[in-house]
Amino acid sequence: MPNQHLIEARGVTKVYQTKDGAVESLKPLDFSIREGEFISVVGPSGCGKSTLLKMVAGLLPVTAGTLELAGKPISGPQRDVGIVFQSSVLLAWRTVLDNILLQAEIRRMPKAEALAKARQLMSMAGLAGFEGKYPWQLSGGMQQRASICRALLHNPSVLLMDEPFGALDAMTRETMNLELQRIWSESKKTVLLITHSIPEAIFLSDRVMVMSERPGSIAAIYDIDLLRPRTLDMMGSPAFAVFAKKVRAHFYSQGTLDH
């Protein structure tokens, strides 16, 4: 059933225990993500964006509240989730293809099936012909594409991305945004993207979730109703600028720049 809520957070908080006592990282969060939706989270550094992603991934336990994936509480690493990290985290001793197949190896997927899927993903990501190369022989953008392939190999319904293009140069980043839009529209995954870039968030997302400074809380959620497929030219359109201004206003509201 489309538009069903795939991820549901109710009163989700995170408190870290440190030497100086408890530090509240996230205030109670309530949000839900529909199946097939592309949602971005933008916020200042240290607002708990990555913590939120790790909790959805099941890599960090929630302190309080309930966080559910497909109706079941998330209580550990999920089978139905693929993660793309800020750095590509490709293993230097494996070829690109073997890096992607690592997902299948650990999850004990049937070999032939995994190989076919890997090749299909690689051609979709424009990596055909690079199967036998090592990660360091690839550009930064290609490395990150390979890590996206790895995250999609076991055909998860949710793709979690933690500032995946933060380390790329501006030009490559725009190309990657286009690529990601294409991959998303072809694969119909539910995507949760953490980013620092307001244009990137607006360009890619159905909805943009704006978070406030630490302890993080949801400041606003905007529906981005720009037509798809979106082109880079649209970044200069008035509609795009209105969204960008709205989102940006949150970050300057406490400062001297009053919008």
């Binding site: 790790k54 991934a57 890599l59 693929g82 993660i83 990290f85 750095s87 293993l91 650990i106 999850r107």
Partner: peptide, 22 residues
């Protein structure tokens, strides 16, 4: 890298797999 350990965990790797493969 901590991200590498997170990657292993996200794949559901056992402690032994994490050790030998990562």
């Amino acid at each position: 890298e901590p991200d590498m350990i997170d990657l292993a965990r996200s794949m559901g790797a056992s402690r032994l797999q994490t050790f030998f493969k990562f």
